[in-house]
Lab assay of single mutants.
Amino acid sequence: MAEQVALSRTQVCGILREELFQGDAFHQSDTHIFIIMGASGDLAKKKIYPTIWWLFRDGLLPENTFIVGYARSRLTVADIRKQSEPFFKATPEEKLKLEDFFARNSYVAGQYDDAASYQRLNSHMNALHLGSQANRLFYLALPPTVYEAVTKNIHESCMSQIGWNRIIVEKPFGRDLQSSDRLSNHISSLFREDQIYRIDHYLGKEMVQNLMVLRFANRIFGPIWNRDNIACVILTFKEPFGTEGRGGYFDEFGIIRDVMQNHLLQMLCLVAMEKPASTNSDDVRDEKVKVLKCISEVQANNVVLGQYVGNPDGEGEATKGYLDDPTVPRGSTTATFAAVVLYVENERWDGVPFILRCGKALNERKAEVRLQFHDVAGDIFHQQCKRNELVIRVQPNEAVYTKMMTKKPGMFFNPEESELDLTYGNRYKNVKLPDAYERLILDVFCGSQMHFVRSDELREAWRIFTPLLHQIELEKPKPIPYIYGSRGPTEADELMKRVGFQYEGTYKWVNP
């Protein structure tokens, strides 16, 4: 592979701008107003304001973009700056750019259920340069409990009458099928589907988006991507930290609602779906819905739930269990780990287990898709061969690698495990991989909904998990304890083995 010439960040961002501006969906010269509902909250200060700053800094926003914060707290732009700027990672050389960014910011205080507050917000936006005809993007960085009041008031008082209007809704989209349907029906009564952007930030990850290209742009994968060759698929999300004093919020939802029903299920769809007619948003989402419709409700015998306990040999936070978090209700049975087996009941995947695993306070930070292939028929190497695996590593250190057998150097035919490896950090030294939120917010500006969740996708996802969630809430089974920093409950490994996964433990990928 030829040595790549190092590029400056300015040059890299210039390439990104060229890609972005050559499309006809990006209205570079139009006025846009980006409204952050819930501007005083954690999500706004840690993710949304920093993301908008990065896009502005790199010249990736339309030229005439204004940012308006809205929340109940009586704040000023200076207050917003004070709480969000520490997350910007701005350099001293960017000081003038930073001043320009905050000059485009404003803030309006108001209630979430008060019509007069929204009329005041609308008047404020109209007073901005060309504000009355601007395109408006409303980001709901809010708890779902206020979605209905907020969307109703936005629709009645704050819509642009000339430009387009788009609304970005953060997960969780309800707690179960019934609450999700209620919320979807409410929002759909106010906005068209092409105006609604239900954001799952995992769909903005580079390697998640790469799944489609790997599958449908490489001839070698087509013939082997089926039940005849693939023994099982494992989708993993692991965090090495616990709730760390923020367990009160987590306890309301648990690990299945927080990660599995959305992030992991979306990745499953991209692995299992048929080739779409095109890369058009609805063509892709149509195929994802077909996959979900082929999955039956989760069966309790295919589920393992766990909850982390303190590690007596650990240090600091590792010595504390979930129930030691003062914000967690006493005696909570909320799971911090889950392993679930699903089956896609169609011709391509009949009988292939899709194993979804996620948890907190585990032994490493990792998100990946792992396809394990069947054993080689007619073994001539005296059971020395391990199964081939194709691994798409989402985070950290984005990579695609194939675990395969090669001859060990020497005189004899002794096979050993090795890999074919594409590590993004080595291959793409001159490429700026956008943060997931950067990519998705740019998608909203461009009107691309491919990486957002459609209402029928959402409904099918909740259909699969709601009976299990209701059973857990009714019966309150005690989750299996696992030690902070471990791989999780051993019962999860036993479940995976029972459905056909072979864990060798003899080879570990190392970032080159």
Results as ranks from 00 to 15, higher is better:
Arg175Val: 08
Glu99Met: 08
His129Asn: 14
Gly163Glu: 06
Arg104Asp: 04
Asp42Thr: 03
Lys47Trp: 06
Gly23Gln: 10
Tyr197Asn: 03
Asp24Ala: 06
Tyr70Met: 08
Leu55Val: 04
Leu142Ile: 14
Glu85Ala: 13
Ala149Lys: 12
Gly245Phe: 09
Tyr118Leu: 09
Phe237Tyr: 04
Thr151Asn: 06
Leu214Gln: 11
Ser106Asn: 11
Ala44Cys: 07
Phe101Ser: 00
Glu18Phe: 15
Thr91Lys: 15
Asn122Trp: 14
Gly59Phe: 06
Ile230Trp: 03
Pro223Arg: 05
Asn64Thr: 07
Arg17Lys: 10
Ser188Ala: 14
Leu214Pro: 00
Gln133Met: 11
Asp79Phe: 10
Leu16Asn: 15
Arg136Trp: 08
Leu211Arg: 01
His129Thr: 12
Lys205Thr: 00
Val169Met: 11
Ile167Leu: 11
Cys232Leu: 13
Val12Tyr: 15
Gln119Asn: 09
Gly204His: 02
Cys13Gly: 12
Phe173Pro: 03
Ser180Pro: 05
Ala217Leu: 06
Val146Asn: 11
Asp42Arg: 01
Arg166Glu: 02
Lys171Val: 02
Asn185His: 10
Ile36His: 02
Ser189Asp: 10
Tyr70Ser: 08
Asp200Glu: 02
Phe66Asp: 08
Val150Pro: 04
Tyr249Gly: 00
Leu16Gln: 09
Glu193Gln: 02
Gln83Ser: 15
Phe253Ser: 07
Leu121Asp: 05
Met207Phe: 01
Gly174Cys: 06
Lys238Met: 06
Asp194Pro: 05
Gln119Glu: 15
Leu20Phe: 13
Phe253Arg: 00
Gly110Pro: 02
Tyr139Ala: 05
Gln83Val: 11
Gly69Gln: 00
Ala115Trp: 14
Phe253Ile: 10
Phe34Cys: 13
Thr51Ser: 10
Ala6Leu: 09
Ile255Asn: 03
Val108Glu: 07
Ser40Phe: 03
Arg219Ser: 07
Ile15Cys: 13
Ile15Lys: 14
Tyr147Gly: 03
Ala127His: 15
Lys171Thr: 00
Gly254Glu: 03
His186Ala: 13
Arg219Phe: 10
Gln161Ile: 13
Gln178Ala: 07
Ala109His: 14
Ala39Ile: 06
Phe26Gln: 15
Arg81Asn: 08
Arg219Pro: 07
Ser180Ala: 08
Pro223Leu: 09
Asn64Ser: 12
Phe221Val: 11
Ala103Gly: 09
Ile48Phe: 02
Trp54Ala: 13
Trp225Met: 07
Ile33Asn: 10
Glu239Ile: 04
Leu183Gln: 01
Phe138Glu: 00
Leu211Ala: 03
His129Gly: 13
His27Arg: 15
Tyr70Gly: 05
Glu63His: 11
Ile154Asp: 00
Pro172Tyr: 01
Leu121Lys: 04
Phe173Trp: 10
Pro144Cys: 04
Phe34Gln: 04
Asp228Pro: 05
Glu18Trp: 07
Phe241Tyr: 14
Asp24Cys: 05
Lys45Ile: 10
Phe173Ala: 03
Asn210Ile: 02
His155Trp: 15
Met37Cys: 10
Ile36Gly: 00
Leu177Val: 13
Ala115Glu: 12
Gln133His: 10
Ser157Val: 09
Ile15Tyr: 11
Ser180Gln: 05
Glu99Thr: 08
Lys171Ser: 02
Asp100Glu: 14
Gly245Ile: 03
Asn153Glu: 15
His201Tyr: 02
Tyr107Pro: 01
Leu183Asn: 02
His27Ile: 07
His129Leu: 12
Arg57Leu: 14
Arg215Lys: 10
Met37Pro: 13
Ser40Met: 02
Leu7Val: 13
Val233Ala: 08
Asp100Trp: 06
Asn122Arg: 10
Ala44His: 00
Leu121Arg: 01
Gly247Phe: 05
Ala134Pro: 13
Ser40His: 02
Asp194Cys: 08
Ile256Ala: 09
Gly23Val: 11
Arg175Phe: 15
Gln83Met: 04
Thr145Cys: 05
Gly204Gln: 02
Ile199Cys: 04
Ser157Met: 08
Gln22Val: 08
Arg17Pro: 13
Ser40Val: 02
Phe253Leu: 01
Arg175Gln: 09
Pro223Phe: 04
Asp251Glu: 09
Glu85Ser: 13
Ser179Glu: 04
Arg246Ala: 03
Trp54Asn: 14
Met212Ala: 04
Arg198Asp: 04
Arg257Asp: 08
Ala90Gln: 10
Leu235Met: 10
Arg215Thr: 00
Phe102Val: 04
Asp176Trp: 04
Ala141Asn: 00
Pro144Leu: 00
Ala134Ser: 12
His129Val: 10
Lys205Cys: 00
Thr31Arg: 13
Ala217Arg: 04
Ile187Met: 15
Ser40Arg: 03
Ser8Ile: 12
Ile224Pro: 05
Asn105Ala: 09
Lys89Val: 12
Gln111His: 12
Phe216Gln: 02
Ser179Cys: 04
Pro223Ser: 08
Gly110Ala: 07
Gln178Glu: 07
Lys45Asp: 03
Asp228Asn: 10
Arg215Glu: 04
Ala6Thr: 15
Asp30Met: 08
His124Ala: 13
Lys171His: 02
Lys238Cys: 06
Leu235Ser: 03
Asn135His: 11
Tyr197Ser: 00
His32Asp: 08
Pro172Asp: 01
His129Tyr: 13
Arg9Gln: 11
Asp176Asn: 04
Ile167Phe: 14
Asp228Ser: 06
Glu99Gln: 07
Asp181Ile: 02
Pro223Trp: 07
Phe66Cys: 12
Glu206Ser: 07
Tyr49Val: 05
Gly222Leu: 14
Asn135Val: 09
Asn218Thr: 05
Asn185Gln: 15
Ile48Glu: 00
Ile230Pro: 00
Arg219Asn: 09
Pro144Met: 01
Asp79Leu: 09
Phe221Leu: 14
Glu239Thr: 09
Pro86Ser: 10
Tyr139Arg: 00
Ile199Ser: 02
Thr236Tyr: 05
Glu85Lys: 05
Val12Arg: 07
Met212Asp: 03
Pro92Asp: 08
Phe21Ser: 14
Arg9Ser: 13
Phe191Gly: 01
Ala231Lys: 15
Ser189Arg: 11
Leu98Arg: 05
Asn218Ile: 00
Asp228Gln: 13
Ile162Met: 11
Arg120Val: 09
Tyr147His: 01
Phe21Ala: 07
Gln111Asp: 15
Lys238Ile: 04
Gln133Asp: 14
Ile67His: 00
Ala39Arg: 00
Thr151Ile: 06
Tyr112Glu: 01
Phe253Asp: 03
Thr151Ala: 14
Gly14Arg: 15
Ile36Thr: 03
Leu130Phe: 11
Leu60Thr: 04
Ile168Trp: 03
Tyr202Met: 02
Glu93Ser: 07
Lys46Ile: 05
Phe101Lys: 01
Cys232Gln: 13
Arg136Asn: 15
Gln83Leu: 13
Gly23Ile: 13
Met1Leu: 02
Gln209Met: 06
Thr51Ile: 09
Ala231Val: 07
Met159Ala: 07
Gln133Glu: 09
Ser189Gly: 14
Thr76Val: 05
Leu20Gln: 06
Leu214Ala: 06
Lys95Asp: 05
Cys232Gly: 14
